Simulated scan of single mutants.
Amino acid sequence: MAYLIPESTSAYLRQIKKWIPAEPVIRIDDNDVVKPDGYRFESPGIVRDGSESTSTKKVYKKGCHVTEACVLTTNHHPVSIFSKIHSSTEKD
């Protein structure tokens, strides 16, 4: 399945390409956002609450997963190149 990138995203990535070195450092962060009282989210799932969990207890609440990728520019500034909010309850 091909993924079509909007023109605005293509223009953004073309600009960022000018700022990154030939051998870029890319950091990928797979994280969770807890929104126990959120009601406007589509298909909220259950995620681990890192602020309340400890090494001996795990606390789970309603929320979503966030995947983010950043690249370091030649001036060592992180710039987002990918960001996706997704639910653990839906496959797509």
Rank of each mutant, 00 (worst) to 15 (best):
S83I: 13
H76Q: 11
Y60E: 11
I20D: 14
E52T: 05
S80E: 13
I81A: 08
K17N: 14
L4H: 15
E42G: 02
P21G: 12
T9R: 01
A11K: 10
V71W: 06
K91S: 12
A2E: 15
Y3E: 13
K57V: 04
R48I: 02
L13H: 03
P78E: 04
S80V: 13
K57Y: 10
R40H: 13
F82Y: 13
Y3A: 10
E90V: 05
K17H: 11
T67D: 05
V34K: 02
D30G: 11
W19F: 06
I5G: 01
R14E: 15
I5S: 06
G50L: 15
V79K: 01
T67M: 05
T67W: 07
E52I: 00
D49S: 00
V33N: 11
P24A: 12
I81G: 08
R48E: 08
K58H: 10
V47C: 01
V79E: 03
G50Y: 11
H86Q: 05
I85T: 12
K91W: 07
A2L: 13
V71Y: 12
D49E: 02
N75K: 07
D29C: 04
I26H: 03
T89V: 10
G63E: 03
I85M: 12
W19D: 14
I46H: 12
R40P: 00
I20E: 15
A11S: 14
S43T: 07
D29M: 06
T89G: 13
K61I: 07
Y39F: 10
I16K: 00
W19L: 14
S88V: 10
P6G: 06
E7A: 13
F82V: 03
K35V: 14
V79D: 02
I16V: 11
E23P: 06
K58V: 09
P44L: 05
V66D: 07
I28T: 00
V66N: 03
R40T: 08
H65I: 00
G38F: 02
K58Y: 07
T67K: 06
G63T: 06
E68H: 09
K62D: 02
L4C: 14
D37G: 08
W19V: 00
V34L: 09
D92R: 03
S87D: 07
V59R: 09
R14Q: 15
K62Q: 08
K62A: 09
V66G: 01
D37F: 04
N75I: 04
V25P: 07
R14F: 07
S8V: 09
C70E: 12
